[in-house]
Amino acid sequence: MPNATCFLIAYSVVFVLELARWRIPSTGKIGWWTRVILVAAASVSLFTHTLYLLDRIFLATSGTNSTWAISWHDWGILSAWTLAVAYGWLLIRRSENWIGIFVLPFVLMLVGVAIILSPKTLGSANSATGWRLLHGIAMMGGTMLVSLGFAMATMYFLQAWRLKNKLTSRSRFQLPSLEYSQSYGRICLLGSAASIGFGMVSGVIMNLTRDGRVEWLDRGILFSAGLFVWLVIASAIQWQLSRRGSGDATAWMNILSFLIVAAAVALVLSTPHGGNKMFGPSDEGQTSVNRDLLIEASSSEGKNP
């Protein structure tokens, strides 16, 4: 079974190959072979990553019948995997574009952080119910979408700068069109708001079904709720500004959302919601929602609780 270092190296090779495209012709036989090698390298990376993830899932579910023992390491690996899948899809759909250098750093960072974090689960105490799992996946999905939106926004501004400076992109450094970056940036923004919103709702349901109450004033919950509110506002602002013609609105909202997510994650991790204590059925009554929110939020930033 591959370990995380194995696919970290594989992704690093893919990243180096992406960088090498700067000097390699994008068309003709060489360009075609470069893309084939890139797709092959990305496939190998994703395959080993998937195997490792399946192994972790097997480990997480092997304890008891109804609970999942998930570590911070696992969330990091899962987050990196979702972004890697998005990268693979973009690589196949738009192999002529240089999207990898904007997405792969996130993948590498998440895998790197996951390696630093201990793969050991926090014992039987770190078990999760179905709602907790849904809550965690939704929060993680939202964070990943914000990261992808940030990549789209960066490409948008770079392409806009090139076009203003009359530089065509039909070179070795091809970027997606402004319209593409803008529309996928919008999808990421709306998707992240929906995903984080779902994460909030599932967290509340989880708490209510388990504890019969929600600690609304917990700082972790407040920051997470603030993040959700921001994403809703950002989606509304970009929609409104786009209607008024501001082409950069979506990109700016994506950049701001990413910064706010980064700040929110850091703030959540500094609270008890960051899960400094072991989770377990016995003490879940205290800060269970808070801790769950933290798990997913911090998984993208890789802080160990």
């Binding site: 068309t27 076009l163 065509t168 039909r170 319209e179």
Partner: peptide
């Protein structure tokens, strides 16, 4: 054959294509 070299083709297929997806 990869790069276009007439003004109208560069205008549409390179410049406008860099802005619009469709």
């Amino acid at each position: 054959h990869t790069r276009r070299i007439s003004v109208p083709s560069v205008a549409v297929s390179e410049m406008a294509r860099d802005v619009f997806e469709r």
